[in-house]
Design a protein around this nucleic acid. Structure first.
Lengths: 203, 203
DNA sequence: CGTACTTACCCCCCAAAGGGGGTTTTTAAT
DNA sequence: ATTAAAAACCCCCTTTGGGGGGTAAGTACG
């Protein structure tokens, strides 16, 4: 029997989900947490085979928490469970150690299939995400770490000069990055750039 | 017995939620839809006392759908059920006819209390939202329709001149609105303005 | 009747962004 | 060893944005 822990702040969802898993016969829920802090306290005792992890936690980013969990318990298979269907989020989760990714509007059988797959050491993407990751789309934009950093600073309202000061580069360099970001995202100006960055969860 | 219909695209959540409601003894679920389109087809047959409405539907904005439902079936009490805890969203839902508002991480008993309250014709806000709406905070920003329109056009990357052309106003007027928006939201520049607009769901 | 808010308009001035053209070094992959 | 990408840098020029000051009509509400 596969042991599963769930971490999600939506209490209504966790109850239903725990029921679903327990009644499936393939897995059993050994713990539920509603925040990353709760989870840190218990995860060492639970030692689940699979951790169902919501990306939209109240206290920390799911990406960071996934990395944290994998660093401390590499044997736990993390299965992301979230509302986000953006390329950048999926990719960041997978890059940070997640074994699978489910969107919350997936069917119940996909949840069980995902749990079984990641418990067996395989990777699993639900149908919708599988399509998203395979289909080469102009919306599937991937930025370098430096570009993401610049985008973050731009969205915080820093001017080229201020950014240059903060990260010890020439203002002309910042200008170059900015031009490149506009080109890469196909944005007309800063307003659109920030909008796309937030909508596509690039920062 | 109160009759309830649920509209939410998160299938895992609706199953658990329907169970919870049916077992409470105070209400019974007479229908579930996973999109606004599905709901339109069935709502006339169901005629529920309470409609549990997710604001993050895949096909239309929950605000628009709420207005639509109330226009067609004024006797149905709409209870918003969503992840969003932003002032602007709550206010827009209430302005468009919702009788109550629940966040998805609310406890199960709040869901039942909310259903009972709105079925009885009262309004209901879950604890977290009640606090949010009462506490006068600098984050509780409310814009006039015109300001929201301007904010939308700015976030789409239009320049003052382009906006002026589109809505038949002087570019200087647009500039005035822009300055006022920066002041109202406390934003340093357009980048921050767009970021705040999206984060606080003002557009 | 007054007050507050929305909508609409105008001036000057300079800082910042955006379009165009480039170069070099380092790093990673094939 | 070659290629490709990321990271860093530079100059010229025009458009746009943002800070500072305003004015004034319309309307909603007590």
């Amino acid at each position: 029997m596969i042991s599963v822990a769930i971490i999600d702040d939506h209490k209504i969802l966790t109850e239903g989900l725990a029921n679903l898993i327990d009644e499936s016969g393939i897995a059993t829920v050994i713990g539920v947490a509603h925040s990353a802090a709760d989870c840190r306290l218990s995860l060492g005792f639970w030692r689940p085979d699979v951790l169902l992890l919501d990306v939209g936690l109240p206290d920390v980013s799911g990406v960071d928490f996934c990395r944290e969990v994998k660093a401390q318990f590499p044997e736990i298979n993390v299965l992301a469970l979230t509302t986000h269907n953006e390329y950048a989020i999926v990719r960041q989760m997978l890059d940070n150690g997640a074994s699978g990714y489910l969107v919350k509007n997936a069917m119940a059988d996909e949840v069980l299939a995902g749990i079984a797959a990641v418990a067996a050491g395989r990777t699993f993407l639900c149908h919708e995400i599988d399509l998203l990751m395979k289909k080469p789309s102009s919306k599937n934009i991937w930025l370098s770490p430096r570009e993401r950093e610049l985008l973050r600073l731009i969205s915080e309202g820093l001017t080229n000069g201020e950014i240059a000061e903060q990260i010890f580069l020439s203002p002309e360099t910042i200008k170059g990055y900015r031009k490149n970001l506009l080109l890469k995202l196909g944005a007309k100006n800063t307003a659109v750039l920030v909008k796309m960055a937030l909508e596509q969860k690039l920062i």
